[in-house]
Amino acid sequence: MADSPGPESIPLRTRLPALLPLGAVWVAALLPVAFYLLHWSDPELVVSLAITAKRLVWQAMLVVAAAVVVGLLLYPPLPAWLRRFIDRTRTKWSSDSAPLTRALSELKHFETAQKHYEVARLAWTRSDYRLVGGHAKRSVELEATMPHAQHLLGHFLLRMKSLPEARNAFEAAERLDQGHAFGEALLHVAHLQHLTGDLDAALTTFVRHEREHGSSPRSNFWRGDALMAKGQMEAAAAAFVAAAADPKVRLTAEENWFRAQARVRCWRIRGGKAASNEGHR
């Protein structure tokens, strides 16, 4: 049995964090060569380029540092993004690779849907998307009645921006196990209904989700987004206010990210209202 059934085309944006440092090393390796070649035709140009580059790098570093400090103080999504980034990186770097290696080697002897799901889940924790897609798909192919495999496949497809397929996967997970993952599947169904343009169905599903599983900053934020797309600005503003409300307990990095975004939406809607009131006067 092959390790990864079917190659997945990972979007550049997802691969960028791994490719950027490699690109930076190559640029650093090619710069001296470029300088040397250029020096034969114009040594002055090389020197002024080096001086300017050094100055610009320092200035850029100062500007970035200042912007980060100001952003951290003034713009809520930035610290929330940083927290989520650190959280994801920590999970990725501190998750044990041994079970994944073991599951992959076991798959070489015989394949089962559960084993494929296990590989996909462990690879998902380690952000190894090349492995996730193939194994999650194979797991669903072998055993279409596993809600957790459908759920994981939905997450992967959503990350890959395959929205209709992701919606199908989450719908299948919800159909197989009502309220799967504490309402997580249903919430994603609602969100994907919105993203695929089915606004009325999305709003109905959001209401159902809230009734059955309660609300969270994420569910309120996504509901607000759907309401805004529908043109119901008052209701959207109320949803964003609910998402941005002080939670009284410490939120997870993921939920905190949606709360921070909701706070900015609240400002924008308030700003928009103020501007339209100014216009009326």
Partner: peptide, 17 residues
């Protein structure tokens, strides 16, 4: 990439333009 960087920097040290 590491190999290329090391070679490139060594050459730059020998011919620092």
């Amino acid at each position: 990439a590491l190999l290329a960087l090391t070679v490139s920097l060594t050459l730059h040290t020998l011919q620092p333009s």
